[in-house]
Nucleic acid binder design. Structure first.
Length: 425
RNA sequence: GGAGAGAUGGCUGAGUGGCUGAAAGCGACGGUUUGCUAAACCGUUAUACCCUUUUUUGGGUAUCGAGGGUUCGAAUCCCUCUCUCUCCGCCA
């Protein structure tokens, strides 16, 4: 959870940073300060009462002696119970607000309202000259390598099936990206796609974005509360979360995973209704770095560069954006988006989002390290990025590599050894 | 799915109602000793929050898997859950 000390030390500074994201957050910080002060006052009173009660109890050596203090102790206990109740209420309202406070943006993140104020960092690759480019779903359906209609009967809208070379292309993309990550030193992890609510809370998806998640029927017996993962960022970042601090020698951790991702996207109705761009289920290779605080800026550049190298090797034109304060994710303090060129839309579309979450997730997950055996544990920094979204990569390849006659796809050089062909038609 | 056993500090492991924030051992750190190392000996060795103090310091509260309960008082008794281990059954 958010560090209250930061707010206590310098509430104005904190407010200034957060208001760059959203001016309304200032009100909530004031509210937090108020509740926090009240809480500390009550806590002090409770502690004093308990201290009184404990010293009473400690003086007692036998049952007979206990009779003498019983009444007195009970009065104190009643007072404690009353204070406890109020303390719990304060705690609850405090946590309700804290859970919705996003990460503070870094200085170099431009202030802006929405995606229109993002900054283009650079643009790479050459946009192919295609007359009347087909969409990936038109071409894919013509070639019989993707299906939407039959799949809609199975699972509804926003689902698709890959067939034949389409499925093989997807498999080749996955294999290519995992191999690239392994070669770059990432540890491949194949995690579960069902995850406990507490981890989603830790990475920041809960409670604010509950509506975007697929929630499993809670088990009334065990009380287990579980969801389908919206991204492998959740299990990867949460993987080393524990009471015990990590050893500095093991850092940085660089992890990658291929998983399906599940998003109910309740709020996205009407956007990108056709094709692979926005689906309820899609595959993604996710990259996660866990590192020392002073290294996170550097690690962020490395992670983003790795994601870019995939697009370069696939020969896909793309650009990198530095997201403005109004567009970065809840847990991120700085974020680059990579956008790939989609000829049918005539514009760049997001294919990877690389975030530096600083210690935001680490606090919520209690993810820590020790500089040496004597020193106090400190919070790590966590970073994540797609490397890359598989469905969108599939779409980008089909569209950018379509042949002029509109009846085939040239397989990118980097994928040929995986696919065993240089052309799909 | 059935049956049983567990969960205690960095680790091993005592502890079944108060003198236990927790024995003992290991490890780690500091010191004595030593030509160096080793050994031996002495000492230190959890975390969070709060109060106090000029820094030193002193004090309080919470924490023995998690949550709840009993009690003046809980690591210890009761309930629920989670996880681990062993055996049997079932199964990619």
């Amino acid at each position: 959870m958010l560090d209250l000390k930061l707010i206590r030390q310098n509430p104005e500074e904190f407010k200034t940073q957060l208001s760059r994201r959203n001016p309304e957050l200032v009100v909530q910080i004031d509210e937090i300060t108020k509740i926090d002060e009240k809480k500390r006052e009550f806590q002090k009173q409770t502690d004093d009462l308990k201290s009184q009660r404990n010293s009473l109890s400690k003086s007692v050596k036998s049952k007979e002696e206990a009779e003498g203090i019983k009444e007195k102790a009970q009065i104190i206990n009643n007072q404690i119970a009353e204070l406890d109740k109020q303390l719990n209420e304060l705690d609850e309202s405090l946590n309700n607000i804290l859970a919705y406070i996003p990460n503070t943006p870094q200085e170099e993140v431009p202030t802006g309202r929405d995606e229109n104020e993002n900054v283009i960092v650079h643009t790479k690759g050459e946009i192919p000259k295609i007359e009347n480019p087909l969409t990936h779903y038109e071409l894919g359906e013509t070639l019989g390598i993707i299906d939407f209609e039959r799949t809609a009967k199975l699972s509804g809208a926003r689902f698709s099936s890959f067939l034949g070379w389409g499925a093989k292309l997807q498999r080749a993309i996955i294999q290519f990206m995992l191999d690239e990550a392994s070669n770059a030193g990432y540890l491949e992890i194949s995690p579960p796609v069902i995850i406990n609510a507490s981890v989603l809370q830790g990475t920041g998806q809960l409670p604010k974005f509950k509506a975007d998640l697929y929630h499993l029927e809670p088990d009334p017996e065990s009380g287990l509360d579980q969801y389908l993962i919206p991204t492998a960022e959740v299990p990867l970042t949460g993987f080393f979360a524990s009471e015990n601090a990590l050893n500095i020698a093991e850092l940085p951790k660089r992890l990658c995973a291929y998983t399906p991702c599940f998003r109910s996207e309740a709020g996205a109705a009407g956007k990108d209704t056709r094709g692979l761009i926005r689906q309820h289920q899609f595959d993604k290779i996710e990259l996660v770095h866990i590192c020392l605080p002073e290294e996170s800026t550097n690690e962020h550049e490395k992670l983003s560069a790795h994601a870019e190298s995939l697009l370069e090797k696939l020969g896909l034109p793309f650009r990198r954006l530095l997201l403005c304060t109004g567009d970065i994710g809840f847990s991120a303090s700085k974020c680059y988006d990579l956008e790939v060129w989609l000829p049918s839309q005539g514009k760049y579309r997001e294919i990877s989002s690389c975030s530096n979450c600083t210690d935001f997730q680490a606090r919520r997950l209690n993810l820590r390290f020790k500089r040496d055996q004597k020193s106090k544990p400190e919070f790590l920094h966590t970073l994540n990025g797609s490397g890359l979204a598989v469905g969108r990569t599939w779409a980008a390849i089909v569209e950018n590599y379509q042949t002029p006659d509109g009846r085939g796809i040239v397989v990118p050089e980097a994928l040929r050894k995986y696919l065993g062909t240089d052309r799909i038609s």
